[in-house]
Design a protein around this nucleic acid. Structure first.
Length: 700
DNA sequence: ATCGAGCAGCTTTTT
DNA sequence: GCTGCTCGAT
């Protein structure tokens, strides 16, 4: 990490030269890598399967491998590295940049989904969509499903939208078929949903993978183009690759394909991940060179031994022996707090204490939880103790209503046919186009087989000419609604011209858009009782606009247009940070899922209780207990030096009893590694004052 | 017909 | 504790 020279901050609006831009050629591979790592880095030709245990330097291997490729003269554009999360992609890219000191122009490092988008933005027209397609997230998609249900006259009562969405997803990625696992009663709804997407020129997340495959299968010449380009492909977190991702990879890959994974860390099967594709890979790519990375560089042997103790209870795994050259280390501390707030206080107190005693920084702590909802208590404790923290996961910045509203405007400006987003904003802020009007317009759109926008437009034009072509529409509405619709169309069209004309920067246009629709007044009226909320939401919008600014001014941003922006922002989800999230100097609070691939000197696993890890839902739904165990394994192996596990005796639950019992997985940790923590040590008054003095001096 | 207040249901993990 | 939805008031 580059330490920015203290006190001197360059004006950040201007492109900065890359720090340490002297190329740092990777010549001393032998000295920097162990045997298997070296083999993994230098075996560039042919299929390679790398089984990389936790903490075995996987990221290091991948980045060195890419650097080595470039060193050997393989052109950047021929290299494709696919990752699982945006975070991982960003991290990999910046590490390669750091390592090679090169400017990365045509190297492709992205998630499967982002890669799908990249292809579709180029080629989708042959599939009958337009290039300005919208991308629907969970919320958008649920909205469309809801509309489809209504359209099919299926009562939405008793239908779990979320679950139905998962069924749709499973069907789309080929995991289920109608009548086989998917209730065929919903097939018409699915068809309606699909038709909706097509009319709205919108894609859901699954389409981002399914459509490229369709494209490649129906247009071999296009596939050929990409196969010729990407001659070196790497896939990270291969164990979390779904079958559809595997198919996409297989279509593209020729011979030089390298996948990296660890079956013990497969924790996404609920999303269609299938670690058996490790086996599939060996079948599909004969002559695969298998390389095992088994030396753990991360954790103390105490932590590793605990992790091994747990994971060895899984039956279905590839045999491997992870060993550590690091010393024994401190015992794992187990604490049974009375309830979740004592748990949170314990964690906060320990962090405060250790930071001073062990000279640690806030970012050295990772607090891992099973569900996003568990952040609340811990956040409260952090706030009370003045501990800076950052949460990843949960409702991300981009899911907040006010942000979605603004982005919906942008999406509609970009793609008029995007009904879900159009409907979101057509009366937000209120502009007198209410429910009935929208219903009428939907009818009209339906009749014309178009989207709402086309209906608005048609209505507007016809009404302007005083034509009575809308016999079905309420005549009253025709008179009153006309002006409103007129205004709305003018608003959107006006900003479309403005933004696409690019006379001003996007951020500036967005600011004037927010002004123009008077979102502030809207917030104030919506939250008349609580102007703090209104203020907070407006600040969020402000920081959205500032993040657009930052993005525009970033020298790495090739295209600062609307489409490029939406493209980027549509793929940001859960575990991605909102604008200006700076990880430094903050405790990391996140779900175990989000923690994969990260490491911290000190880790807390909170809520290690039966019903949480393993999660009761997962057990009930015929989930895989072994996957829950892997999840716990992932959590343990995030720790470098010190691991705390807390398991509450009582926890407030949605339904059912308060009593909690410890996670059965705790018993799988060899007893001699554990030290029980008896109650909270009361901080003496004098000591407390010392802390205050110290903390104060830090903030001074 | 539109808007506002109060109510219900929710919380497994993510692209 | 937050969002979205329904019903009643205007």
């Amino acid at each position: 990490m580059n330490v920015s020279t203290a006190g001197i901050t360059p004006p950040s609006l201007f492109p900065r030269p890359v720090l340490g831009s002297t190329p740092m050629p990777v010549q001393n591979l032998n000295a920097e890598l162990n045997g298997p790592q070296l083999e993994a880095v230098t075996t560039l030709e042919g299929p390679v399967l790398i089984i990389a245990g936790a903490g075995s330097g996987k990221t290091r291997v991948i980045t060195y491998r890419i650097a080595h490729m470039l060193e050997r003269g393989i052109p950047q554009h021929a290299v494709l590295a696919l990752t699982f999360t945006n975070k991982a992609a960003r991290e990999m890219e910046s590490r390669v940049k750091e390592l090679t000191g090169r400017k990365l122009q045509s190297l492709t490092v992205s998630t499967f989904h982002a890669f799908g988008v990249k292809i579709l933005r180029e080629e989708i027209e042959v599939l009958g969509y337009r290039k300005n397609f919208s991308i629907y997230d969970e919320t958008d998609r649920n909205q469309l499903i809801k509309d489809s249900l209504r359209e099919c006259k299926v009562s939405p009562d008793g239908v779990d939208l979320y679950k139905l969405g998962q069924v749709f997803s499973s069907v789309k990625i080929g995991a289920l078929r109608w009548g086989e696992g998917a209730n065929s009663a919903f097939q018409p709804v699915y068809d309606e949903y699909q038709q909706g997407l097509k009319i709205f020129n919108a894609l859901d997340f699954d389409d981002l993978l399914a459509l490229p495959i369709e494209l490649f299968e129906t247009h071999p010449e296009i596939l050929e183009k990409y196969r010729r380009r990407y001659r070196y492909i790497m896939v990270d977190e291969f164990q979390d690759t779904s079958f559809i991702q595997y198919q996409l990879m297989k279509l593209l890959a020729d011979q030089n394909i390298c996948v990296v994974g660890d079956d013990d860390q497969s924790i996404y099967s609920w999303r269609g991940a299938n670690y058996e594709n490790i086996l599939m890979f060996e079948r599909d790519f004969p002559g695969t060179r298998e390389i095992k990375l088994e030396q753990n560089y991360r954790s103390t042997s105490t932590i590793l031994e605990a992790a091994n103790g747990v994971i060895s209870n899984n039956t279905n795994r590839k045999e491997k022996t992870l060993w550590s050259g690091n010393g024994g280390g401190k015992p794992i501390e187990l604490f049974h707090p009375q309830n979740e707030s004592e748990e949170a206080d314990f964690i906060a107190a320990r962090i405060r204490e250790l930071r001073i005693q062990e000279q640690l920084r806030y970012e050295d702590f990772g607090v891992l939880i099973r569900t996003n909802s568990m952040t609340r208590n811990i956040e409260e404790a952090f706030l009370a103790e003045n501990i800076p923290y950052r949460v990843s996961g949960g409702t991300s910045f981009f899911q907040r209503k006010e942000i979605k509203d603004v982005l919906s405007y942008l999406r509609v400006i970009a793609n008029h046919d995007d009904d879900v987003n159009l409907l979101r904003i057509i009366n937000t802020p209120r502009r007198g186009i209410g429910k009935t009007a929208v219903m009428e317009l939907s009818e009209l759109a339906k009749k014309n087989g178009s989207g709402i926008w086309a209906a608005l437009d048609a209505f507007n034009r016809a009404a302007a000419h005083g034509q009575g072509t809308f016999g079905d529409l309420d005549p009253l509405f025709q008179d009153k609604g006309r002006l409103e619709i007129d205004g709305f169309i003018a608003l959107i069209e006006g900003f479309r011209e403005e933004i696409l004309g690019r006379k001003n920067s996007l951020s500036r246009n967005v600011r004037s858009l927010v002004d123009k629709i008077d979102y502030w007044s809207y917030l104030v009226t919506e939250h008349s009782k609580n102007d703090k909320v209104a203020r907070w939401k407006f600040l969020n919008i402000d920081s959205l606009i500032r993040s657009i600014e930052t993005w525009e001014n970033n020298p790495d941003t090739a295209d600062t247009g609307l489409y490029a922006y939406l493209n980027r922002v549509s793929l940001i989800t859960g575990s991605d940070d909102g604008p200006e999230e700076e990880g430094l100097g903050k405790v990391n609070l996140m779900t175990i899922h989000a923690s994969k691939g990260l490491e911290f000197p000190v880790v807390f696993i909170a809520g290690a209780e039966d019903g949480i890890i393993p999660h009761s839902r997962s057990v009930e739904e015929g989930g895989d207990i072994e996957e829950e165990r892997r999840l716990f394994y992932v959590a343990i192996t995030r720790a470098r030096d010190k691991l705390y596990i807390t398991s509450c005796l009582r926890r407030k639950k949605m339904q059912g009893a308060d009593e909690s019992s410890p996670s059965p997985f705790l018993a799988e940790i060899p007893g001699h590694l554990i030290e029980y923590h008896e109650g909270e040590k009361k901080v003496e008054n004098g000591e407390a004052e010392d802390y205050f003095a110290l903390i104060k001096s830090k903030f001074a």
